[in-house]
């Protein structure tokens, strides 16, 4: 008798290899680097193992007068943007699914544009949109309409902070994030066997009933996925915030999330040891939140066992 290799393994080899080489090994290395005084990419001088990076990081967090703002911003930003990304994405995907294709395609392109645009250009557009002077797009419109009588610095005016800075962050990121959900849900709705919809329709169900009882339950897996994925993205990335802060479109601290804070502390000064330590802390927090989210969303129940093999 030959020992039979589980065929699943064959299908998984490429993925596992890539994950091993580009995720697991770097992950371990990264944690290791977090315990070294590596500086300025000088890989030839790694130095000896120390926990100093972690000590310093925590010391900074507890003593930095701006850290409280960063934490509050992160919580508000993550919560609202996540809601927009998941619910907005779901709504958008649904609406586009229900629309005629002639209308739906241009709309999908429009809503996908922010994701397609180079981050720098996208940030530039919003930077000019919220620009403080009367040259800013928003200011010029509102001035024309008579809503305001002098131009406002939307993201930085102390009288408007922190809410306006938060709104800008959420808006700018929401428009990018929502398209992720849109594409996933739109495709997911389309992969639902059509006869189910048709059958419901024949039975006399209204549109909203079809949506609630036929369509939404079928994309539960995708909802879990989009939620957890976006949660982790929002906690760890900052590409679309970075330039807005750098260019002064939003207040430095009411516009910085935790990930950007870590980046600024650790990466700008070319201290990779510190950066890796910071990343490790980020990951631990992210992983815990991610696991909690998976429990809440009842991920295990969705991992139904394959229905046997022949």
């Amino acid at each position: 008798m030959r020992v039979r290799l589980n065929p699943a393994f064959l299908f998984l080899i490429p993925a596992l290899t890539l994950i091993l080489v580009f995720y697991v090994v770097p992950l371990i290395l990264s944690v290791y680097i977090g315990f070294t005084p590596l500086q300025r990419w000088n890989l030839n001088r790694m130095g000896s193992i120390t926990a100093y990076n972690f000590e310093r990081l925590f010391y900074m967090m507890f003593h930095d007068p701006d850290f409280g703002k960063v934490i509050r911003t992160t919580i508000v930003f993550t919560a609202f943007t996540l809601a927009i990304n998941v619910l907005g994405g779901l709504g958008l995907g649904l609406a586009l699914y229900l629309m005629d294709e002639v209308l739906s395609l241009p709309y999908r392109i429009l809503w996908l544009l922010p994701r397609m645009t180079p981050v720098a250009v996208y940030s530039l557009l919003w930077y000019y949109f919220f620009l403080g002077g009367e040259e800013g797009t928003l200011n010029s419109i509102l001035l024309r309409l008579g809503v305001i009588n002098e131009p406002l610095s939307w993201g930085t005016d102390p009288r408007l902070l922190p809410e306006t800075a938060w709104v800008i962050l959420i808006l700018v990121n929401g428009f990018v994030g929502v398209s992720f959900g849109m594409i996933v849900f739109y495709s997911a709705f389309h992969s639902i066997p059509r006869e189910q919809v048709v059958a419901a329709r024949v039975d006399g169900a209204t549109t909203s009933q079809i949506v609630r009882h036929v369509l939404i339950p079928q994309v539960r897996w995708h909802i879990v996925y989009v939620t957890v994925w976006q949660l982790l993205s929002l906690l760890t990335t900052f590409a679309h915030i970075f330039l807005l802060v750098e260019w002064g479109a939003v207040h430095r601290w009411w516009g910085s999330t935790w990930a950007l804070y870590v980046f600024n502390v650790a990466f700008k000064t070319y201290e990779q040891g510190l950066a890796a330590a910071a990343a490790t802390v980020l990951v631990i927090i992210g992983a815990i939140l991610g696991l909690v989210a998976l429990r809440i969303l009842k991920f295990k129940e969705m991992m139904v066992e394959p229905k046997g093999e022949i």
Binding site: N6, P7, A8, F9, F11, I19, F22, Y23, V25, P26, L27, I28, L29, S30, I33, L38, Y225, V228, W229, L232, S233, L235, T236, T237, A259, F263, F267, Q272, A275, A276, A278, A279, T280, L282, V283, G286, A287, G290, L291, L294, F299, K300, M303, E305, P306, E309
Partner: peptide, 27 residues
């Protein structure tokens, strides 16, 4: 397909996303 650690693997995979590219890049 059935194999051991299927659920764990999926969990692990999404959690890998918690490690931002910018941090991973050092290694």
């Amino acid at each position: 397909m059935r194999f051991r650690g299927r659920t764990r693997l999926m969990e692990l995979m999404i959690l890998l996303h918690a490690f931002p590219g910018v941090a991973l890049i050092i290694a």
